[in-house]
């Protein structure tokens, strides 16, 4: 297969970036998108040019590191898959493919397609946990959890923190990410004692990071590689509302 690529190249955070054209041939349909970029980079290095910087690590769709905006969509056209799980058979021979970084003010570009998503870590640091020190726990089976709640919590906990929700959202909102963690811990009894603090502190941090506001467009849900649901955002709204009303 042959493709025309338009890739965002930007030397560093301060530099001006632009789309650069590349043509790549002899691509096998069974290659993953990242393997296609590997081949392109290999060509570039051999020609003495600077290879394209991009984030990637596990290449099995779970670490959340890969993060490209491909042909106008976060993680590309394949549903419920990260970029590393996108295969070239999803494209047509001769396609022109745009490759851009995840764009949001809260995700500044480091180089080319690599962005700084540490805002997510700072949000988690404000409450995405249960405050239990090592060694304090009671026997695990002393705390039964409704199976349905446990399943819903797991659905929310599947979030890989890749930032596709922010990238896909026309408003650059991070609500799907934040709500997934708030939901997971709100659904489980372990999260109960801190739920009000958690909702307020995490939402405050999210706002401070400069993410946009949610207007219930639903692009995040549609593009989430782990199919995190909008119901989580509704739950976060409830949690936050209740917490705000009783906050002393």
């Amino acid at each position: 297969m042959k493709f025309n690529l338009k890739v965002w190249r930007q030397k560093n955070a301060q530099a001006q970036g632009k789309l650069v054209d590349y043509t790549i041939e002899n691509i096998i349909p069974d290659m993953s998108f990242l393997e296609m970029v590997d081949v392109l980079n290999d060509n570039l290095v051999r020609k003495g040019e600077d290879p394209i910087a991009f984030d990637h690590d596990c290449r099995e769709g779970i670490c959340g590191m890969c993060s490209m905006y491909i042909s106008g969509r976060a993680h590309g056209p394949h549903h419920a898959a990260t970029t590393c799980q996108l295969y070239m058979r999803s494209f047509k021979d001769g396609d022109t493919i745009y490759v851009e970084p995840f764009r949001a003010g809260a995700f500044p570009i480091i180089k080319d397609l690599v962005t700084d998503r540490s805002a997510f870590d700072r949000i988690i640091a404000k409450g995405g946990f249960v405050s239990v020190n090592t060694g304090q726990a009671q026997d695990a089976n002393n705390l039964p959890v409704d199976k349905a709640d446990a399943e819903k919590a797991m659905d929310a906990a599947a979030c890989i923190g890749c930032g596709a929700c922010v990238a896909a959202c026309p408003n650059s909102a991070a609500m799907l990410f934040v709500s997934a963690k708030i939901s997971q811990l709100a659904l489980l009894p372990q999260g109960g004692p801190e739920r009000n603090n958690r909702a307020i502190n995490m939402v405050n941090q999210m706002d401070e990071e400069g993410f946009g506001n949610c207007t219930n467009i639903g692009a995040c849900e549609a593009e989430c590689p782990k199919e995190i649901k909008l119901t989580n955002i509704a739950r976060m709204n409830r949690e936050y509302l209740v917490a705000s009303l009783i906050n002393e």
């Binding site: 042909s71 969509r73 056209p77 764009r103 400069g210 946009g212 467009i217 549609a222 593009e223």
Partner: peptide
């Protein structure tokens, strides 16, 4: 909301295909 949301993405995408994931009227409130 409109202003803040616009500012939250200072550099826009060169190419975007939003109709693949959402309704135009939801994006155009």
């Amino acid at each position: 909301l409109w202003k803040q949301n616009r500012d939250a993405r200072p550099v826009k995408y060169a190419y975007s295909n939003p109709s693949a994931n959402s309704k135009w009227y939801s994006r155009s409130m």
